[in-house]
Write a protein that binds this DNA or RNA. Structure first.
Length: 145
DNA sequence: GCCAACGTTGGC
DNA sequence: GCCAACGTTGGC
């Protein structure tokens, strides 16, 4: 089980949009960056990711789960671009802002802080736990079962 | 809306 | 394979 963070501008695809897709989820398409694509290729079924609202909000608002492995991006004919599918797991009780991450020493090295423009990025287990703690979400504990 | 960071493209 | 020009992301 590995952890990730994905960014979306709520104007184009918001957390509510993700929730509306239900348990079937949907493709995380439109990614046109090699590093982001490679991260998606490295994902396994059941891996979890924070859902981050860029631009408006600038905060982590929910948790999604990989429900389909990397496959061709349906929004382009260009064979270079792949995507995984995500389904919503839970909205965080409290969202965690970019400012929160910058000011929390344990989170200051997150890719979210250090690599501003990467839209699909890895999160360490420690970072994952810390964000869940700040968010007041105990779902992370279930992972150990 | 501005602009810094940085990824991509294309000429050489 | 270098690097200048260009385009995009995303915080502010």
């Amino acid at each position: 089980m590995r952890f990730w963070l994905v960014k979306s501008e709520p104007d184009s695809f918001s957390w509510d949009d993700q929730v509306a897709l239900g348990a079937a989820g949907g493709p995380w398409d439109g990614i046109r960056n090699y590093q982001a694509r490679n991260n998606m290729r490295a994902m396994a079924l059941g891996d979890r990711a924070f859902f981050y609202h860029s631009n408006m909000g600038k905060e982590i608002v929910g948790v999604v789960e990989v429900c389909a492995l990397s496959h061709r991006d349906p929004t382009t004919d260009d064979p270079r671009w792949d995507c995984v599918d995500f389904r919503a797991i839970a909205a965080l009780p409290r969202s965690v802002t970019l400012t929160d991450c910058k000011s929390e020493p344990a989170l200051a090295d997150m890719a979210l802080v250090r690599q501003m423009r990467l839209s699909v990025q890895p999160v360490t287990a420690l970072e994952w736990q810390r964000v869940c703690d700040i968010a007041g979400w105990d779902g992370a504990l279930n992972l150990r079962a």
